[in-house]
Amino acid sequence: MKEILNLIDFFEHFDHGDPYMRAAISELQDNMPKELLDKRSDWFITWSQATKRVKT
Results as ranks from 00 to 15, higher is better:
Met1Asp: 15
Met1His: 10
Lys2Pro: 15
Glu3His: 09
Glu3Val: 08
Glu3Leu: 06
Glu3Trp: 04
Glu3Ala: 07
Leu5Gly: 09
Leu5Asn: 12
Leu5Ser: 12
Asn6Tyr: 06
Asn6Phe: 02
Ile8Gly: 10
Ile8Trp: 11
Asp9Thr: 04
Asp9His: 08
Phe10Lys: 04
Phe11Ala: 02
Glu12Leu: 12
Glu12Thr: 07
His13Trp: 03
His13Tyr: 07
Phe14Met: 02
Asp15Gly: 00
Asp15Ser: 03
Asp15Met: 01
His16Glu: 08
His16Ser: 03
His16Pro: 00
His16Gln: 06
His16Tyr: 04
His16Met: 00
Gly17Glu: 15
Gly17Tyr: 07
Gly17Thr: 10
Gly17Lys: 10
Asp18Pro: 00
Asp18Phe: 00
Asp18Glu: 04
Asp18Gln: 03
Asp18Ala: 01
Pro19Glu: 12
Pro19Ser: 12
Pro19Ile: 05
Met21Ala: 08
Arg22Cys: 03
Arg22Lys: 10
Ala23Ile: 00
Ala23Cys: 01
Ala24Glu: 04
Ile25Val: 15
Ile25Met: 09
Ser26Met: 01
Ser26Thr: 06
Ser26Ile: 01
Ser26His: 05
Glu27Phe: 08
Glu27Asn: 09
Leu28Thr: 10
Leu28Lys: 11
Leu28Asp: 06
Leu28Trp: 15
Leu28Met: 15
Gln29Asp: 11
Gln29Tyr: 13
Asp30Gln: 12
Asp30Gly: 07
Asp30Lys: 13
Asp30Ser: 13
Asn31Trp: 02
Met32Asp: 05
Met32Leu: 15
Lys34Pro: 07
Glu35Ala: 00
Glu35Gln: 03
Glu35Cys: 00
Glu35Ser: 02
Leu36Glu: 13
Leu36Ser: 06
Leu36Val: 04
Leu37Lys: 15
Leu37Arg: 15
Leu37Asp: 10
Leu37Glu: 11
Asp38Ala: 06
Asp38Lys: 07
Lys39Cys: 04
Lys39Gly: 11
Arg40Thr: 10
Arg40Gly: 09
Arg40Gln: 14
Arg40Ser: 14
Ser41Leu: 02
Asp42Lys: 07
Asp42Met: 01
Trp43Leu: 13
Phe44Thr: 01
Phe44Trp: 14
Phe44Cys: 02
Ile45Tyr: 02
Ile45Asp: 05
Thr46Tyr: 13
Trp47Asn: 02
Ser48Lys: 09
Ser48Tyr: 04
Ser48Ile: 00
Gln49Met: 08
Ala50Met: 11
Ala50Glu: 12
Ala50Asn: 12
Ala50Gly: 07
Ala50Arg: 14
Thr51Gly: 08
Thr51Lys: 06
Thr51Asn: 07
Thr51Met: 02
Thr51Tyr: 06
Thr51Ala: 06
Lys52Leu: 05
Lys52His: 04
Arg53Gln: 11
Arg53Leu: 12
Arg53Ile: 08
Val54His: 08
Val54Tyr: 05
Val54Pro: 01
Lys55Leu: 13
Lys55His: 12
Lys55Pro: 05
Thr56Pro: 14
Thr56Tyr: 09
Thr56Leu: 11
